[in-house]
Structure formats: C-alpha cells, structure tokens
C-alpha cells in the first residue's frame, strides 16, 4: 500500500511536470518566433527607423522600403471583409437559433462551417479563375456606374472593371470569415437563457425585438469579441488574397484598383528576395502583421474576459 503510494507520487510529479513542460513549450515557441522575427527584421528597422511604417515606397531596385501600402491593403481588405462578414454571420446566427426548423438546424450549421474547412488555396484558385472574371464582367461595371457616380464615396468605386483588386480580395475574405463568426454568434445566442426570451415573447415582443432587446444586450461583449477573432483571421489570410488582390505596391483611392497586403507581399517576394535589406524588410512586414494580429487578439480577449466577469457578477 505504501509502496504503491510512493510510486504513485513519483509518477504524479513526473506527469504534472510533463504537462507543465508542454504548456511552457507553447510559450517558448511564441518567444522563439518573436525573437527570430525581431532578429530578421532588425537590419531593416535600423536602416529605415519609424519611417518604415509611414513610407509608401516599396522599391527593390533602390532598396527603399516602406510598409504603408501593405498595411493599408491589409487593413482595408479586412474592413471590407468585416462589413460583409458581420451582418451575414449575424443573419445566419439569427436564422439558425430563432427561425430554422429543428431538423434543418444541424445541416445548415454544418454546411456553413464547411466553408471554413475549404483550404485557402482553393479559394485562391476559385477566386482567380472563376470569381474575378465574373465579378469584373458583371458586377464591377455596375458598381462604377452607380456607386462610382456618388459624391464623396464616388472615387472609392470608380475605375476600370479589372475583376482584380482590393474589393475582390475583401469580398473573398468576407466569405472566408463568415463561418468563424457565424458559429461563435450562434453559440452565444444559444446560451441566452430561454426564460429571458420566453418572458419577452410572453409580453408580445416580435422575434426581432427579442433579438434586439434581449439577446444582443445579453451577448454584446461576446459578439464584439467574436468580431475581433474574425478580424484576426482576415488580417493574416495569405493564399486566397495573393491570387486576387493584384499585388501592386501603390496607394490607390479606388477599391477597384489593385493593392497589396502584408501576407501577399511575403508570399510573392520572400523566396525571390536577395540582399539583406530586402529580405529583412519583408520579415519586418511579417513582424508588423504578427503584432497587428496580436493586438486584435488582445482586444478580443479583454472583451471576452469582461464578459465572463460580468457573468460572474450576475450569478
């Protein structure tokens, strides 16, 4: 009895420390990635200083590099993706939780989530060979004839219908983030206690009023957190964007014109970059992207933590 006890204790220590080491390994990996990115980016950061972030030049011949175009493209495509993805995911979540007949719930939820399972290179091929031609021939002329004529936002939507560009990339990103956000929204909406919803229905509220007045306030912070998670996805997406964004290192007002993102710059140029400064500038772009997703994630976490704290108070 005692012997098995000591043996058990030793195994206990081994097992506990084994799990601890593995957990610390995760931490070490992130540190190692940070260090290697910083070390790789250092020559470029030293040479260009803070102006690296605000310079819109990207000239491999004269070795003058700035990140502004890529940052702009990354942020703008992600915003477009959010403008499409958030309302659509929201609608899907409402449909699944409030409207859908029970037997259809699971199939539809699964189908939407399958969108997330399709590898991003498939989105890229489809985008280049199927979606961009269709979009350029049928949708973009219409956009520049209608939205392009409007005052103020007109310049954003004018230009030749190339089918390739910031808007196309944003739309494909939007499709790609829908399943992530829709499934989190759905989970959130389903944890709203039915007592709350039913009492609202009981006093005669319509479905929309229940969602607006009961479900949304209850899940508010979580919804914002989910949006942030979707945003993090959109920022880092590589292969799909590379195929359809047009990869031009210039700042353009029009969303129909080609642009570039950080990840597509990396995918296009990393293997071809010769010379320390060029490679280092690309790695510096990677570092910026890493920090960008890091910040978005931190914000999401902060909001989600506030949510759980609030729940704690409530119960």
């Amino acid at each position: 009895m005692i012997r098995s006890g000591t043996k058990g204790r030793i195994l206990d220590i081994i097992f506990a420390n084994g799990t601890r080491i593995c957990a610390l390994l995760v931490f070490l990996i992130i540190v190692a990635i940070m260090v290697s990115l910083l070390a790789g980016a250092w020559p470029a950061l030293k040479k260009f200083g803070p102006s690296f972030i605000i310079s819109s030049q990207w000239n491999p011949v004269t070795e003058q590099f700035g990140a502004l175009v890529a940052i702009y493209g990354t942020v703008v495509t992600s915003i477009i993706a959010m403008l499409i993805g958030v309302p659509v995911s929201f609608g899907i979540a409402i449909f699944i939780t409030e409207l859908c007949p029970v037997w259809l719930k699971q199939p539809i939820a699964t189908a939407i989530e399958l969108l997330a399972a399709i590898p991003s290179i498939i989105y890229g091929m489809w985008g280049l060979f199927v979606f961009a031609p269709f979009f350029g021939d049928h949708i973009e002329p219409w956009i520049s004839d209608t939205l392009g004529r409007l005052p103020v936002i007109g310049p954003l939507f004018s230009g030749p219908p190339l089918g390739i560009g910031v808007l196309t990339a944003g739309i494909i990103l939007g499709i790609m983030v829908i399943p992530f956000m829709a499934s989190v929204f759905r989970d959130l909406f389903e944890v709203v206690p039915s007592v709350l919803k039913e009492s609202a229905y009981g006093i005669g509220a319509t479905t929309w009023e229940v969602i607006k007045k009961i479900v949304l306030p209850y899940t508010k912070v979580g919804v914002v957190g989910a949006i942030m998670l979707g945003l993090g996805r959109a920022l880092g997406e590589t292969m799909a964007v590379t195929f359809v964004i047009g990869n031009a290192d210039r700042l353009e007002t029009s969303l129909l014109m080609p642009g570039n993102t950080i990840s597509s710059s990396l995918a296009n140029q990393f293997t071809e970059a010769v010379g320390e400064i060029y490679t280092s500038s690309l790695i510096a772009l990677g570092l910026i992207l890493f920090l960008l997703t890091f910040m978005v994630l931190a914000l999401a976490k902060y909001l989600l933590i506030r949510l759980t704290l609030k729940e704690g108070v409530r119960t």
């Binding site: 990996i29 992130i30 990635i33 290697s36 880092g236 997406e237 590589t238 990396l266 994630l297 976490k301």
Partner: peptide, 17 residues
C-alpha cells in the same frame, strides 16, 4: 493567451520560422 496568439499567427510566418 499565448496559445491563442499561436492559433491566430499567419501560417506563412510559421513557415518562415
């Protein structure tokens, strides 16, 4: 938190690493 950072790290950066 660090695990979530790794989860959201762009895969191309992991490749470079």
């Amino acid at each position: 938190f660090v695990n979530d950072v790794l989860l959201s790290a762009p895969s191309i950066i992991l490749g470079v690493f």
